[in-house]
Design a binder for these strands. Structure first.
Length: 219
DNA sequence: TCAAGGATCCGCT
DNA sequence: GCGGATCCTTGAA
């Protein structure tokens, strides 16, 4: 079932928590890919010095000021697309970054996407068979690679059943997430208190982002 | 118009 | 654990 928009339109921290355990779904030419979201980070308001909205409204971040439930996709480091979900009330810039997903459906397509991406960059990479499921979407850049998301998806309504890219609520029988919080990753440039805000949420029971084979990244 | 730097990942040491 | 790849966005001039 599609994720209800009002869940995202309220408090952004609550939204970041609700997204843990929810499903990311992409119906594309390569079939249906889906996964369980296991790591998120919230960026809230123009006063948040770690947020892209810290300089106010610009052409790039305009989508963050819009209604909740839309996708905000941006390029970081010149090579990685990152998927965010716009949250909070319209007019106030807020978004939740999807940092990691546990693959469920379309794992072969994700593996193919990863190999094709590496080839495009002319990089040697692990063979397709050597890629473990838990590593396919274990970082914000990798989520986009695995699901075939790029900036053409910027502005897509993730709460519309008609969208090829959308969010679905956890299904009955899904394991309940064991939610842990910590400071956000890669925001050392931001002043306090923003640098240390515990606005990162992970499912500690997930093999992808929790006490998995690599564990949370530090910086 | 320009220079600086960033919400990252991977391979090698 | 460290450094390289790689290019868009921003603020200042």
């Amino acid at each position: 079932m599609i994720l209800a928009r009002h869940v995202l339109a309220g408090d952004s921290l609550a939204a970041a928590r609700v997204l843990i355990g929810a499903r990311l779904v992409h119906e594309g030419p390569d079939g249906r890919r889906s996964g369980r979201i296991v790591e998120t980070e919230a960026y809230i308001g123009t006063e948040d010095r770690a947020s892209h909205a810290r300089f106010g409204r610009t052409a790039r971040n305009a989508i963050m000021f819009g209604p909740a439930g839309r996708a905000y996709v941006y390029l970081v480091y010149g090579m990685y697309d990152c998927l965010n979900v716009v949250t909070g009330e319209e007019g106030r810039a807020a978004a939740v970054l999807i940092r990691a997903v546990e693959p469920i459906e379309g794992i072969d397509a994700m593996r193919d996407a990863r190999v094709a991406w590496a080839a495009r960059r002319g990089r040697a990479t692990a063979s397709a068979s050597g890629l473990r499921d838990s590593r396919l979407a274990s970082g914000p850049g990798l989520v986009s690679v695995a699901f075939g998301i790029d900036r053409s998806h910027n502005g897509v309504d993730l709460c519309d059943v008609e969208s090829s890219l959308r969010l679905e609520a956890a299904e009955a029988g899904d394991r309940l997430p064991d939610i842990a919080t910590s400071a956000r990753i890669g925001v050392a440039y931001a002043a306090e208190p923003w640098r240390s805000m515990p606005w990162r949420f992970v499912d500690a029971s997930s093999p992808v982002s929790g006490a998995g084979d690599r564990g949370p990244r530090r910086r």
